[in-house]
């Protein structure tokens, strides 16, 4: 594909109460096959999707949280997380899973994909996209 577009997936729902989080993840994985510039934003209850230590054995749901840690392999290297949303929930970046990618241009050094952003930065982020997908 010659034209690379900037895609932003906006994730705003908690992981298990509704199907949005899983649906978004599946679309992200399908979309990744088309080699576009894909970025994810976690805000509002969406920050819970990447919370550390999820264990779904007791609720008989598939625990799809490990899949977020594979997204680095899919060349998704920017996962934005809303600072305001973390604050409102009493969470810090340490409560999130480490999400990393290997930087091709830096001898495959492992780097964090997580970028914490405030509301003004989220506004700017949305403005610079070609396509915004909301879940």
């Amino acid at each position: 594909m010659s034209d690379t577009k900037k895609f932003l997936y906006v994730n705003r729902k908690a992981p298990y109460g509704t199907i949005y989080a899983l649906e978004s993840l599946e679309v992200v994985l399908i979309g990744a096959a088309f080699e576009q510039d894909v970025q994810l934003l976690f805000m509002d209850d969406g920050v819970f999707q990447i919370a550390k230590g999820q264990d779904t054995k007791g609720i008989e749901n598939k625990n799809f949280s490990p899949t977020y840690t594979a997204l680095g392999d899919y060349e998704i290297t920017k996962m934005y997380v809303s600072q305001e949303s973390l604050d409102e929930r009493g969470l810090t970046i340490d409560d999130l899973m480490p999400l990393t990618y290997e930087d091709e241009d830096d001898d495959w050094a492992e780097k964090s994909s997580i970028i914490v952003v405030n509301n003004a930065e989220i506004a700017a982020l949305m403005e610079e996209q070609d396509v915004v997908l909301s879940f």
């Binding site: 994985l29 990744a32 096959a33 598939k62 490990p66 594979a70 392999d73 899919y74």
Partner: peptide, 15 residues
């Protein structure tokens, strides 16, 4: 087992 998905061909090849 680790990621709960089957990798896409591109990812599989690289890995």
């Amino acid at each position: 087992d680790e990621y709960q998905i089957a990798p896409a061909v591109r990812v599989l090849t690289k890995a």
